Simulated scan of single mutants.
Amino acid sequence: MDRIILEHRFNTHQKLVILLGVGFPLIITFITLCSLIPLMHFVIFLFLLINLLLYGILVAIAFLKRGFYKKNAKLYKASFFYTKLIFKSKIRLVNRPKLAILKFKKAQKYAWFNVANPDMTSSFNAFEINILSENHTQRDCILILKNEDHANNAVEFLSSNFPLKLEMFNPDFSKGTP
């Protein structure tokens, strides 16, 4: 297996902000210009097509999933649209032979509910996958997930495809930083 697709990049609230907050002006422009079809000429038609293309790109971005991708023994953090690879960024594993999952409590405020309830937030657990130095004094976060099972599946993928070992995070500063 050369890839693992884990979870959506954006939650439902963020998708609504992308699709309605950013896409709404594009939709209004499209509807307005469509009412001018009898008067339309090539420039307006081209503008309509560009708006439609931009909205399609926004929809694709809103429904991206994140995961990991392996190619030629190199590890990449990747974004997928369904199963198609869209973006990837290389993760450097030099001097990072260990893995750890750190659990954090996080919260996100909602954009449209602050008039009725200014402190309306959604709390969730975040599972941060980190690569560590030998004595755990240096760590790099490679992905943050909201589901513990997805984090465990990611660690299983990483440890089976790369020379990484899962350990409990326990930094030992007495040995010094390499």
Rank of each mutant, 00 (worst) to 15 (best):
S35D: 10
Q138Y: 06
L132W: 02
H150W: 08
K70I: 12
A151T: 05
N117P: 01
A154P: 01
L143C: 10
L164R: 07
F157D: 14
M1Q: 13
Q108P: 04
K90I: 13
H41C: 03
C34T: 13
K71W: 12
K109S: 11
K15R: 14
D2I: 13
P97K: 09
H41A: 15
L164Q: 07
F80V: 12
K165N: 11
A78F: 12
I142T: 04
F68W: 02
K106Y: 11
G23Q: 05
I27Q: 01
F162V: 07
I28Y: 00
N51A: 12
F45M: 11
F10I: 03
Y110M: 09
N130D: 12
F81A: 07
R139D: 14
A107T: 13
S133M: 02
N152E: 15
R66L: 10
I61D: 00
F157R: 06
K103D: 04
E7R: 00
L6R: 02
L164N: 07
S133E: 05
F157A: 10
H13Y: 10
K146E: 15
T121C: 06
R3K: 14
E148P: 05
N161F: 06
I27S: 00
L49E: 08
C34A: 15
D172H: 02
L52Q: 15
K70W: 08
S133C: 03
I28C: 05
T32E: 04
G21K: 05
L16D: 06
T121L: 02
L132D: 01
I144V: 15
Q138R: 07
L19R: 01
L166F: 06
I50Y: 03
L54E: 00
L52D: 11
H41K: 15
A62E: 00
T29N: 08
Y55C: 02
F63Y: 12
M120H: 14
K105W: 05
H150D: 15
K84Y: 13
Q108Y: 08
I31F: 11
T137A: 08
I31H: 05
F47A: 03
L39S: 14
S35P: 02
F47I: 09
